[in-house]
Design a protein around this nucleic acid. Sequence first.
RNA 1: UCCUCAGUAGCUCAGUCGGUUAGAGCAUCUGACUGUUAAUCAGAGGGUCGCUUGUUCGAGUCAAGCCUGGGGAGCCA
Length: 462
Amino acid sequence: MKRIKIKELLSSSPVGSDVTVKGWVRTKRGNKNIAFIALNDGSTINNIQVVVDIPDFDENLLKDISIGACICVKGKLVESHGQGQAVELNAKEIFLYGKADADTYPLQKKGHSMEFMREIAHLRFRTNTFGAVFRIRHAMAFAIHKYFNDKGFFYLHTPIITGSDTEGAGEMFHVTTMDLNNIPKGENKTVDYSTDFFGKETNLTVSGQLEGELGAMALGDIYTFGPTFRAENSNTPRHLAEFWMIEPEMAFYDIRDNMDLAEDFLKYLIRYALDNCKEDLEFLNSMIDKNLLERLNFVISNEFVRLSYTEAVDILTAADRKWDYPVGWGRDLQAEHERYLVEQHFKRPVILTDYPKEIKAFYMKQNDDGKTVKAMDVLFPGIGEIIGGSQREEIYEKLLARIREMKLKEQDYWWYLETRKYGTAPHSGFGLGFERLILFITGMSNIRDVIPFPRTPKNAEF
RNA sequence: UCCUCAGUAGCUCAGUCGGUUAGAGCAUCUGACUGUUAAUCAGAGGGUCGCUUGUUCGAGUCAAGCCUGGGGAGCCA
């Protein structure tokens, strides 16, 4: 008999039908005559209750069916005699795929801390919380592709190994095949990369943006969605050394179009989760964050506030409170400032634009005032910066001047500059941190709990 | 990297002013119970008190250093 997934079983199998289910035991309880097994196969957060007439089965088999064991059950679907569920499965045959020694299996029926779960990341998928989180993570990845595909964007695969540093900012992971115990040195005792695999210094990408722009200058609208690496020694609940980022890049979009897209995109994703991950979100709302559903609904039904950096500084200066870090035009906004704007002053997502050029990247479109650039940061409650983007500088001379002002290596950007030399066009784009989106959607509080196997300083287990 | 808090049974934690043999709940094991819902009830086993050094007659408790983890900050998505 063909196996049926529990999600399908619960939604569409008629009472009285004979079915086969396969899954992992969540709990077993009962007495010497009858046992109840809560079985889960990951297809849904819901379990099927398997009812076992103990005299009909081998005693040793039943002993081995403990929490974590994997079994196949054939039986008849019936209306439940108990209260907790509509239907249950009366077992006729049970096959044990793999037992889970109750003495050593780390998961129990009762609560575990998130910290403990991180130590058993290979098993934490088997909990309600992580099952819900990773089903939602999948749904969001799918929705991202659907959103862009429906809008005529093309998914562009930008390189993971790069020969250039996107912004000159941020530590990168070196990629090499050199023998680290015997690194060839050239003149001045510097490393001689000419003998390395690529014949030059290479790193893992910190952003696909620059390559993404090359694609946008021909395909029109593109997006990337791939792994991104930062070797920064960041130890916070919002940073990973390896994370996933979505970077759309659009020809002929100005900063306003860019903001419109970012807001529409985020609201689409939240709505997609509400429509397609209802049960998982309800579980997270009840167990992880009591305000989750309310917050998600609030965000999709209200306009994001849009204001300039200069206006934000005015608000912060006028605010009746003390800052750990001083507020002033030209200084970068600190976490406490962003939080104040989002969580107290406006109480909704905020898009900040037109930052001083000194605190932003070289490629951002310079405003006529000579002081600011067309940058935009989308700030979310509890998360901080979830999106960072800008209109790009498309005028060759201005871009080159900025590269020189910031003392970047001009020759490293020859191909980037050529897009401004040949058929340049106004264009814009942004980057969305995928895990930060998942944090917001799930209500989880630590980014290490929304990626299957987190990479952070001093941790690359699994 | 900085600040701060923590590390005691498989898990979550208590442990008073430094004092005899370090406790609880859950989990595990044994037994009871004819429909359970984190099942319930009774009993049992289970400890290098993160590591090292020191102070002391005596250290889970005090001190120093280190390791690991949480929270906050910086960097950023």
